[in-house]
Design a binder for these strands. Sequence first.
DNA 1: AAACAAACCGACTTATGGGTCGGTCAAATG
DNA 2: CATTTGACCGACCCATAAGTCGGTTTGTTT
Lengths: 205, 205
Amino acid sequence: MQTTLKRRETMHRLCGKGLEIFNEKGYYNTSLDDILQELSLSKGAFYHHFKSKEDYFINIVQNLIVQKVYALLIEPLDTNENPIPVIVESLENALEPGKKNEMAYGFMLNDFLTEFNKRNEEISGYLKNIISVWEVNLVAVLKRGKVDGHIARHIDCEGAATYIIASYLGMRSLMTDSTNRQLKYQYIQQLKQYFKSISATQITA
Amino acid sequence: MQTTLKRRETMHRLCGKGLEIFNEKGYYNTSLDDILQELSLSKGAFYHHFKSKEDYFINIVQNLIVQKVYALLIEPLDTNENPIPVIVESLENALEPGKKNEMAYGFMLNDFLTEFNKRNEEISGYLKNIISVWEVNLVAVLKRGKVDGHIARHIDCEGAATYIIASYLGMRSLMTDSTNRQLKYQYIQQLKQYFKSISATQITA
DNA sequence: AAACAAACCGACTTATGGGTCGGTCAAATG
DNA sequence: CATTTGACCGACCCATAAGTCGGTTTGTTT
């Protein structure tokens, strides 16, 4: 059926452009007209597909953002290698603004989390959920690291995961300019330093 | 003159309550009427003292927030002791919601930084400036730590300061509920772990 | 081709919230 | 006591933006 395809395609275009602009300017600072104008669509078209701006954004979160976080931060953890370089690499990669003018997905989470934290509990919940899944996976991979002898026995994996996530999210507030290589480099260096301190092999300082 | 005193007092009340509510609900999600109603003041009174909402908030930043950040995060660094426990203690303290229903100042910075990042360059600038002063002081105290033999020689102090700040700011996104002792505990523990890795005395793992 | 439905249009409604302005009242000034 | 000035009042103005709705176009079905 062509009509169903048309529906999908328009919704897809709306979500893609929406994420792009929300990410750029923030959710509450972006009007639907801002997005609609970019796509040459009307209010009518929008409300034909989504029941509200909120519903629209939830759609974006549950599809695009979840998907991207999985791809960038969670799936890479699924190996049997030493988890430490794997985690470092995934974070490094997530902070990288996409190769061909893609978005810097590494930034989205902290921005949206903060924006919705005090304003919309439902959306806030979805976002926290993403973090929570990420955390669970980090904990799992760290624990496996213990078993495999890569991570020191006495380390609190839950605490370590929290700490890793916090430092990652916090980098966003410092990196106004997403292309700041200096800050990114510093972050990765210190992260490695931290990892050395929780690794099983003694430091050769 | 009594009138001048009256002026000061009203402005002071406005700024205090403003910070409280902005911190609770966010700047853009708080209307002037929200604040004015709490203080039983009118629009007229407000605009008699401040030329705009923006001007008002800049006032709050430059007075109240700057002052609090200095008191909580910067001044404590000014000792000759081993910087590591000093820094840890200051962060621990800053994450603590004030004893008698004061605000959790540790949270404000990340929230406001993110909120203004894409919306108001001027306010953004003032906030980043605060972070920058903090960073400078952290770097200084870390460097002194090297000289005094508390911190390992090979450590990049600028990078370490950045990393400390990032993890601190990022905790805010995780601690929705400012009284979450579990998360705070985890954070402090891992922070100490990190500090062990940059300290001059070898780890006794 | 007729009938129907889905996709889309855009003017309109409504609520919100920053900012204005003419005015009141009380304290300071002379 | 008369006048001025600073603090404050609150109705009003106006821009923005979410959401509505009656209508048009386009595609599908019979």
